Simulated scan of single mutants.
Amino acid sequence: MRLTGFIPPLCTPLTPDGAVDTASLRRLVEHLLAGGASALFALGTSGEAAFLTDDQRRTVLRTAVEAADGRVPVLAGVIDMTTPRVLGHAREAAALGVDALVATAPFYTGTHPAETADHFRRVRDGAGLPLLAYDIPPCVHTKLPPAVLLELAEDRTLIGVKDSSGDLNALRRLLVTLRHRGLDATFSVLTGSELTVDAALLMGADGVVAGLGNVDPAGYARLYDHARAGRWTEAAAEQDRLAALFALVEAADPATMSGTAAALGGFKAALRLLGVIDCPATAAPLRPLSEGAVRVVERHLKEGGLL
């Protein structure tokens, strides 16, 4: 499997009582495919995977696979603290028909780089599906060492990495080393830093996984297409528009809720205003946006040309 292009990390629509809203999730899948998504990533950070029960995770994956109906690959986040727990999620995801898995390093307690590499090998072998690493230091409190990524790229344990570290210097060095070792044709590097996608693509990244892409999938698809065609002026202009739109994640008062609640609430409020999902609820204990914050989100949608 070779992953490129725009791969949105699906939000998980919920009902007012906290159940997975499968009808809204199916509409979201159609919205993303119509916008140009080349694959779908369910149960990532934007999908609130850390807040969902195992039953809810299964419902999300089953619905996403059925809604995609083979049109694009479906990636499943199997994020958890330890190898046995990740393996359990991975085997369930494989049984539900996903095409690839996405896992972080173990967290809560730290692991040595050799233990981190062993973790990924156990997940890959135990589930029998292509596996991507998810590098997100703010959530797991460690950055994946480049040496581990290169080692696992060479032995084909990993088919790629989603880099949400925000470290463009490390990303550049990884891309250069992959090219020097002849691994760039088999190992996909996807940026999760949605405000610097044009820079990452210019450096040689293969694609983008952007939470804001739930709201404006066509914008990220255009950005990717401009970059791949070498239209860097147009790519930069599209990135600038998306950067302005991204301000919707700051619509809430930071004195009243977490940054996670504000960002996910902003995405979901936007999707509700666009008529894609029925309810903007986020999972407990995340607090909902105020009416005033929703009006700010609406203003950003209008300024971004989406309403």
Score class of each variant (00 low, 15 high):
Val294Pro: 07
Asp184Leu: 03
Arg2Met: 15
Thr109Gly: 03
Gly47Cys: 13
Gly97Asn: 12
Pro9Asn: 07
Leu32Cys: 12
Thr109Ile: 15
Ala221Pro: 07
Ala100Glu: 06
Asp99Asn: 09
Asp69Met: 01
Ile79His: 09
Gly211Phe: 15
Ala117Pro: 06
Ala42Leu: 02
Gly275Glu: 10
Ala263Cys: 12
Ile159Asp: 02
Leu307Gly: 12
Leu61Lys: 03
Pro106Cys: 04
Asp216Tyr: 14
Glu30Phe: 02
Val29His: 05
Asp216Ala: 15
Ala133Ser: 10
Ile136Ala: 00
Leu28Gly: 05
Ala105Ile: 08
Leu242Cys: 08
Thr104Cys: 01
Ala34Lys: 14
Tyr108Asn: 09
Glu66Gly: 02
Pro254Gln: 13
Arg71Asp: 00
Ala93Glu: 13
Val215His: 13
Arg26Met: 11
Ala23Leu: 12
Leu171Pro: 01
Ala270Glu: 01
Met81Asn: 07
Val176Glu: 10
Arg57Pro: 11
Asp253Ser: 04
Arg181Ala: 07
Val197Arg: 03
Gly18Ile: 04
Leu158Ile: 01
Thr83Tyr: 09
Leu3Ser: 00
Gly160His: 01
Leu178Cys: 00
Trp232Val: 10
Leu183His: 08
Phe51Ser: 13
Leu144Val: 02
Asp55Ala: 15
Phe6Gln: 09
Leu306Gly: 04
Val140Met: 02
Tyr224Glu: 04
Ser24Gln: 08
Leu32Lys: 05
Leu158Trp: 00
Leu195Gly: 14
Gly35Glu: 07
Gly219Asp: 03
Leu129Glu: 00
Thr191Ile: 06
Ser38Lys: 13
Leu301Arg: 08
Thr233Val: 07
Arg295Glu: 14
Ile79Lys: 03
Gly18Ser: 03
Gly230Val: 03
Pro8Glu: 12
Gly70Ser: 07
Ala284Lys: 05
Leu10Lys: 00
Leu28His: 07
Val197Gly: 01
Ala42Ser: 03
Leu273Gly: 02
Ala237Ile: 06
Thr53Gln: 10
Arg287Glu: 02
Cys11Leu: 09
Arg121Val: 01
Gly110Leu: 14
Leu32Met: 13
Glu250Lys: 11
Leu87Val: 05
Ala235Ser: 13
Gly47Pro: 05
Asn169Gln: 11
Glu250Trp: 04
Val74Ile: 13
Asp198Met: 06
Leu174His: 05
Phe51Ala: 10
Asp155Arg: 04
Val148Phe: 00
Val208Tyr: 11
Val72Cys: 07
Asp240Gly: 00
Asp54Ile: 13
Arg231Ser: 14
Val140Pro: 02
